[in-house]
């Protein structure tokens, strides 16, 4: 296919002769038998040809192998191998994307699957410390203090955890993404915080009580526990 060439210009140029297979220029194109129609007019061929060949016009010419007028390749072997590589790559790319999308229907995590605005779940998280004597002490929106030999040491959940609305304790928030992801991140954040409060020697582990309400559903409660700071791990499932 030759683009941007007016029919009149095309007809009077040698380009038409090349397409008809009657031009001597076509004999210069390697791999093409002169005198037969269907010579390949590839982008790699045109720049080598003198401008005068095209009637002096500025032409944009590109390969369109779907078009029978320029369908026979002089570099069949190389381009065919490249074409198969491209086809394989495209197939693999599309297959991977489809796999990730379909997979998300069977797993709680919707990452890489393009589930836009997947849900509208509101939650309120409350942080509780479980002391060595078994008592549970609710923190003040994630803040608490412990008495040590050197004085009072204050801890705050927000000093450890930021973003994804994981830092908002004690008030209702709409979860970003899916609520399952929020739970996963809360669990990891609990363990993270539990590992980073060395001065607090009285807390055995941390609990996060999450009240949540999925769209069109009733309020439910879920309790997450950090790994035990004494070494043992306790887990709580959804109530």
């Amino acid at each position: 296919m030759v683009a941007c060439v007016t029919p009149a210009l095309y007809a009077r140029s040698d380009l038409a002769e090349i397409e008809r297979g009657t031009s001597r220029i076509a004999e210069l194109v390697p791999g093409r038998r002169p005198g037969k129609p269907g010579g390949r007019l590839g982008a790699e061929v045109y720049p080598a040809l003198p401008k005068a060949c095209f009637g002096g016009a500025n032409l944009i010419c590109w390969r369109d192998p779907m078009n029978s007028m320029s369908s026979v390749s002089n570099t069949v072997g190389a381009s065919r191998g490249k074409a198969w590589l491209i086809l394989l790559f495209c197939a693999a790319y599309v297959a991977f994307q489809v796999f990730m999308i379909v997979r998300a229907h069977y797993v709680p995590c919707k990452q890489f699957a393009f589930w836009m605005f997947p849900e509208s779940t509101y939650f309120k998280a409350t942080l509780t410390r479980v002391l060595a004597d078994g008592r549970e002490v609710i923190t003040s929106d994630g803040a608490w203090a412990v008495q040590t030999g050197t004085g009072k040491v204050e801890y705050d959940w927000q000093d450890f955890v930021q973003s994804y609305r994981l830092d908002s304790l004690g008030r209702w928030e709409r979860s970003k993404g899916t609520f399952d992801d929020t739970i996963k991140y809360f669990q990891a954040a609990l363990d993270y915080v539990a590992d980073r409060m060395p001065e607090d020697r009285v807390t055995k582990h941390l609990l996060l009580t999450i009240d949540y309400e999925r769209a069109g559903d009733a309020v439910k409660t879920l309790v997450l526990a950090s790994k035990a700071r004494s070494g043992e791990r306790q887990e709580h499932g959804p109530n």
Binding site: A43, W62, D64, P65, M66, S68, S71, S79, K82, A83
Partner: peptide
């Protein structure tokens, strides 16, 4: 043009970018 040739031709197709 057979389907295989069509596929390879599609992969090699060039045009305005």
């Amino acid at each position: 043009m057979g389907p295989i040739k069509r596929l390879t031709a599609w992969a090699n197709k060039e045009g305005p970018v």
